[in-house]
């Protein structure tokens, strides 16, 4: 069980919830008993939204760089088994927000809550020890070290204080095979890999530590069609196993395909959280660009109100 942690985790068992909560699922026109007929995986998917305490909650987070207020009073909640897409224009503060969660930039104001308790995340190590794994946009890999070394960087397996290369290599091969990642050899330096291969290695690395929350910063930006599909599959697999996922992407198709919720940032502030299923792409895009609040929309709103009268 301990050898390849990634694939051994079954999907979370369906939570037993009170009938009153089950009715919530019935909001979409089917009888309350319908949920019981669902396959277990789907039932679990429905149920996780019910879980009370979010894995991670940001409350009123602010971050300033010199004269730039990068984040103002940002609030965000992520539950287990949930994929939250974080979208926004360039410079909206997505990467900064992710870096505050990952401990690269400590926050100036606000509270970070982990499983309901306030925590301080000042160093990358803090985030790691909480169970947050981050895959950065600018890949954080060492060119001169081989694939195995990069996968286990910072959490090397040791035997009597000595690196256990054999075990690391075995686990690395297992992991890469499980995730259907194709690279020529696990013993070649990262420098010899293509951009897409590096991205998959970086994502594979984030999954080694069995994190509770995985943050993917534009994971598909540099990938081909097939690799993008693989990464999206990976995201779904993460959700099935009950991990919380924050996905940053500019690609609305990707977001619609895998995310449960979309949190929009605009100029460093929250600009709405949408349920993916019940929101159209246009609504999300207008939230990103700020088109919801301009002269045209205001006039349109007024005209509508007058017509109704």
């Amino acid at each position: 069980m301990t050898r390849a942690p990634v694939r051994h985790h079954a999907p979370p068992a369906p939570r037993v919830t009170s009938p009153a909560k089950l009715v919530r699922g019935a909001g979409r026109n089917y009888p309350p008993t319908f949920l019981h007929n669902l396959p277990p995986g789907q039932a679990a998917k429905e149920m996780v939204h019910v879980s009370a305490t979010p894995v991670l909650a940001l409350r009123g987070v602010s971050k300033r760089f010199g004269a730039v207020q990068a984040l103002t009073d940002v609030t965000l909640e992520i539950h287990a088994g949930e994929v939250v897409a974080l979208v926004g224009d360039n410079g909206a503060g997505k990467s900064t927000l992710v870096k505050t969660i990952a401990g690269v930039h400590p926050i100036d104001e606000g509270v970070i809550e982990w499983e309901g308790k306030a925590v301080s995340v000042n160093k990358p190590q803090d985030a790691q020890s909480l169970g947050i794994a981050t895959v950065y946009q600018d890949l954080a890999l060492c060119d001169n070290i081989d694939v195995v070394g990069n996968l286990f960087l910072g959490r090397e397996l040791k035997k009597f204080g000595v690196l256990d290369e054999v075990e690391m290599e075995r686990r690395a091969r297992d992991l890469l095979t499980t995730l259907s990642i194709r690279i020529p050899s696990v013993r070649i330096p990262i420098a010899s890999l293509s951009g897409g291969q590096r991205q998959t290695v970086a994502i594979a690395r984030s999954m080694l530590g069995e994190p509770k929350l995985v943050i993917l910063d534009e994971p598909t930006a540099a990938l081909g069609v097939e690799q993008t599909a693989q990464v999206l599959d990976l995201v779904e697999r993460l959700r099935e196993r009950g991990h919380a996922v924050i996905l940053i992407s500019h690609n609305m198709a990707d977001v619609k395909a895998v995310a449960d919720k979309v949190a929009v940032l605009r100029l460093g502030r929250n600009n709405g959280v949408f349920e993916v299923k019940s929101t159209s792409q246009e609504e999300i895009i207008s939230a990103i660009t700020g088109a919801t609040d301009n002269a045209v929309t205001r006039r349109a709103a007024r005209t509508n109100a007058e017509v109704k009268k």
Binding site: P124, Q125, D143, I145, G154, V162
Partner: peptide
């Protein structure tokens, strides 16, 4: 053969990557 040595090499490869890996 030790984690310490691996960290030295990692720093020589990419300081930022090492920092983010918790070194």
């Amino acid at each position: 053969r030790t984690a310490y040595g691996r960290k030295v090499f990692a720093l020589g490869g990419s300081v930022e990557a090492s920092r983010r890996a918790g070194i």
